[in-house]
Computed example of a mutant assay.
Amino acid sequence: MVPSHRKPLKERALSKSNQARPVGKKKRHVKASYASEDEDTTFTPEWNDCRRNITDALRCYKKLRKDKGLRDNLSNQHKMNPEQGRCHSLALDGRVANILKVSGKWVNTIKQIGCLPGIKISDEYHWRGELCVIGLHYNFQRGIDYISSVEGKTLATSIVDSYQYDRGIISKYPFPNLTYTGEGENRDQMFEGGNLALKNNIHYKKPVRVIRKYNSDDNANASGYKFVYEGLYRVTKFDKEIESGFSVYKFQLDMLDDHQQYDSKWKQKRIRRH
């Protein structure tokens, strides 16, 4: 759910056009809080247009997820295979995201490193598929998403702390510094895929977007959780440790300064009136 100062939009058919996840044994509540615009700057019309598109895409996502009849109708229109039985969890997220994709509702469709237009720190989302639809994190299941650079090197674009393996991020709130456990369950981790990408981010000094999963205290999601965009972090170093008899990589991440969180091309000076 992208925050807005407007009243909630009335749901309609698709148009054309806390307490945190457990860290160790502790839990905490994180209430909905949204980053406000910088007092001295405001975003460009193009950035705001993208944010409106994101709000619309997420509204459509929510409606589609609840309405199987609407999913079936749009699937038939786009000649998609019929929905098999009752979709649940990630299967349903994937189904909804694919319908929105063929409907032309995806936003930020080019996978890229750094901040994205229309997205603010502390924006909240309720399903994994939403992260894909708005371009924040394209991988439905893996915690590390990455791209291949022009030189053929893999570089990490984003990480999601999903606690799938009771690992992920280790930190205390607030968290300007994070430790992220690499990919690889019940085996020795290798420098491949997402782990290699995070290592390359250190060498090439590329930031990574961080999304964390929290237990939700507002019952906005039947699963009782939400995803929060925490901002851009730089990967500074890694260590190799032993956990449960397997070697794992621990990546150190440091949050970028406020002025580096949003690309200057999306910001313009606020006109002061005296």
Rank of each mutant, 00 (worst) to 15 (best):
R6P: 00
S15G: 11
A20F: 10
H29K: 12
V30F: 04
A32C: 06
Y34R: 09
E37Q: 11
D40L: 13
T42H: 06
F43P: 05
N48W: 06
C50W: 08
R51I: 00
R52F: 10
R52L: 04
N53D: 12
I54C: 07
L58I: 03
R59S: 02
L74C: 02
R86G: 04
C87P: 00
H88W: 06
S89P: 09
D93S: 03
K101N: 09
I113C: 03
L116P: 00
K120M: 03
D123P: 00
W127I: 04
W127C: 05
E130S: 01
C132L: 14
H137F: 04
N139T: 12
I147L: 08
K153F: 08
L155G: 02
L155Y: 13
T157K: 14
I159S: 01
Y163I: 12
Y165D: 03
G168S: 08
G182V: 00
R187H: 11
M190Y: 08
N195V: 01
Y204L: 12
P207T: 09
R212F: 04
N215T: 05
S223A: 09
Y225D: 08
Y229W: 13
R234E: 14
F238N: 03
I242M: 13
S244A: 12
D254A: 15
Q261E: 01
S264D: 15
S264N: 14
Q268N: 10
R270Q: 06
R272G: 06
